[in-house]
Amino acid sequence: MPTTQDMSTALESGLLDDLQHQVAVFARRAEQTRLGGVGRLRNSMDRAAYLLLSRLDSKGPMGVKALAAGMGIDSSTVTRQVAPLVETGLVKRTSHPEDGRAVVLQLSPRGKTRLDEVRASRRELMALLTEDWQEDERETFCRLLTRFNSALSERMAATAQQPEAPRAPAS
């Protein structure tokens, strides 16, 4: 006869299966739509650009290494992702005021305008998707999603610090 612990574990296992499935569906749908907003700005800015511009907007000008560290990604990835933003005038590269050899990335006025437009479009999409939700449901969802994203970030950071496990030789 199953114990209370066994039944609890089985229920939790089912819930965790449902959770991982819903996260997978969310990731696929978010990537398909890029949660890009509504109207003419729908799908108008990819996730990497949006996150880079948002970081520069909230934290101010910074170097590639600081930007990469703050976003939890590699400097070479930031360099590659920021190049088209510089080419299109959304980000400016300037010399560091104290060390002329260092490069500082800064959101340009054009970048700020574009980011504000995309944010407004995405905000409108969030309002549409949750229009039948109560305010406390939106707050709870946002709080839990933030907590989930923080746990993912912490897990990624901890995993990155662990040495790779040795691989078994091919047979």
Rank of each mutant, 00 (worst) to 15 (best):
58 S>V: 08
59 K>F: 02
59 K>M: 07
59 K>R: 12
60 G>T: 08
60 G>E: 07
61 P>F: 01
62 M>T: 00
63 G>A: 10
63 G>L: 00
63 G>I: 00
63 G>N: 10
64 V>T: 14
64 V>G: 08
65 K>C: 08
65 K>Y: 10
66 A>H: 04
68 A>D: 06
68 A>Y: 02
69 A>T: 11
70 G>V: 01
70 G>A: 08
70 G>E: 03
71 M>F: 05
71 M>G: 04
72 G>A: 09
72 G>K: 05
73 I>S: 03
73 I>N: 03
73 I>F: 05
74 D>Y: 03
74 D>M: 05
75 S>Q: 13
75 S>K: 13
75 S>M: 04
76 S>M: 07
76 S>E: 04
77 T>C: 07
77 T>V: 13
79 T>Q: 11
80 R>W: 05
82 V>R: 04
83 A>C: 01
83 A>E: 13
83 A>W: 05
84 P>R: 10
84 P>G: 09
84 P>L: 09
85 L>N: 04
86 V>Q: 03
86 V>C: 02
88 T>D: 14
89 G>Y: 05
89 G>D: 10
89 G>P: 12
89 G>F: 06
90 L>T: 01
90 L>Y: 06
92 K>A: 10
92 K>T: 08
92 K>N: 13
93 R>A: 11
94 T>H: 03
94 T>W: 00
94 T>M: 10
95 S>E: 04
95 S>I: 00
95 S>N: 13
95 S>T: 04
96 H>V: 03
96 H>D: 15
96 H>K: 08
96 H>G: 13
96 H>C: 10
97 P>Y: 07
101 R>V: 03
101 R>Q: 13
103 V>G: 00
106 Q>I: 00
107 L>I: 04
107 L>C: 03
108 S>Y: 05
109 P>D: 15
110 R>Y: 01
110 R>A: 14
110 R>I: 04
111 G>C: 05
112 K>T: 13
112 K>P: 01
112 K>E: 15
112 K>N: 05
113 T>C: 04
113 T>R: 14
113 T>Q: 14
113 T>G: 11
115 L>E: 06
115 L>N: 07
115 L>S: 03
116 D>S: 12
117 E>I: 03
118 V>G: 10
119 R>I: 09
119 R>Q: 11
120 A>Y: 02
120 A>F: 01
120 A>Q: 15
121 S>V: 10
122 R>H: 03
123 R>C: 06
123 R>G: 07
124 E>T: 14
124 E>G: 08
124 E>D: 15
125 L>H: 06
125 L>K: 10
125 L>N: 07
125 L>S: 06
126 M>A: 15
126 M>D: 07
126 M>S: 13
127 A>S: 14
128 L>D: 15
128 L>E: 15
129 L>V: 13
129 L>D: 13
129 L>A: 12
130 T>F: 12
130 T>P: 01
130 T>L: 14
133 W>S: 09
